[in-house]
């Protein structure tokens, strides 16, 4: 098992260090996401309506755009020095490499969603944020996993393309549609607007999406790596 864990932990540690070194790019992604939410909030007048049903769509609106920017930079450190080619001389690297990138992207997406949540709570004056978070964490984490699975794999797929920043959203968004709809539709609201419960059918869809895309990604990632 150390054949997996040692390289996995090393790659994750190295990526965290590089993320810390390039914290400016992380901050700019977060500001971009915040800006989207703020612009939409300014343009929408909820009147007497409860803001709670709007929270999940707004959090995901910001996370979607910011998250895609992050996904496109998944292999940035490896592409600069042609490190991916060097990795290929090492046996058993594929699984630790893919999973270390996936874990870091999931971590980033969860963090981004939490920040978006804090901003949405403040902008819409949501009265019971902890109760909402208690309900929302499951679809949000499942959403982050599915989004990152697709984003990480597709980021590897478009790596050699000069217009990868444009290509990634074009090919990833249609595939992500069921996931995005699933996250938003997971909530069932009371007449007052409060979250009543989570819809098990949509949660099942999110779990199935995550399992399928993580499994398929692990299977095809070796081919992607060889094609670089």
């Amino acid at each position: 098992m150390s054949l997996f864990w040692r390289p996995f932990m090393l790659l994750l540690k190295k990526d965290l260090l590089l993320l810390k070194r390039r914290s400016a790019s992380v901050v700019s992604v977060i500001f971009f996401s915040l800006l989207i939410i703020i612009i939409f909030q300014i343009g929408i007048d909820l009147g007497e309506m409860s803001p709670i049903p709007f929270a999940a769509p707004f959090i995901w609106l910001g996370s979607l755009f910011g998250g895609m920017l992050r996904m496109s930079r998944t292999f940035e450190s490896e592409t600069r020095g042609h490190v991916l080619e060097g990795y290929r001389l090492t046996k058993g690297i594929v699984l630790p490499l893919y999973l270390s990138k996936l874990v870091l992207n999931v971590f980033f997406m969860v963090l981004l969603q939490f920040l978006m949540f804090v901003v949405v709570v403040a902008l819409f004056n949501i009265q019971s944020p902890l109760f909402y978070l208690k309900m929302a964490w499951l679809p949000f984490v499942l959403g982050a996993m599915g989004f990152s699975a697709v984003g990480t794999t597709f980021s590897g797929m478009v790596l050699g393309d000069s217009s990868k920043d444009l290509l990634l959203p074009v090919i990833a968004y249609p595939i992500l549609s069921p996931l995005l709809i699933g996250v938003i539709k997971s909530f069932e609201y009371a007449a007052s607007g409060d979250v009543l419960s989570l819809n098990p059918a949509w949660i099942s869809l999110l779990i199935a999406f995550d399992l399928i895309y993580i499994s398929v990604s692990i299977l095809v990632f070796n081919i992607l790596l060889e094609s670089q």
Binding site: L18, R21, S77, G81, H82, E85, L89
Partner: peptide
């Protein structure tokens, strides 16, 4: 066992130090 390859690309991480 295996191969090691040196090319002009270097296979190094730009933002890390020599030690890292």
């Amino acid at each position: 066992e295996s191969f090691s390859l040196f090319t002009q690309e270097g296979y190094l991480f730009d933002d890390l130090t020599v030690e890292e």
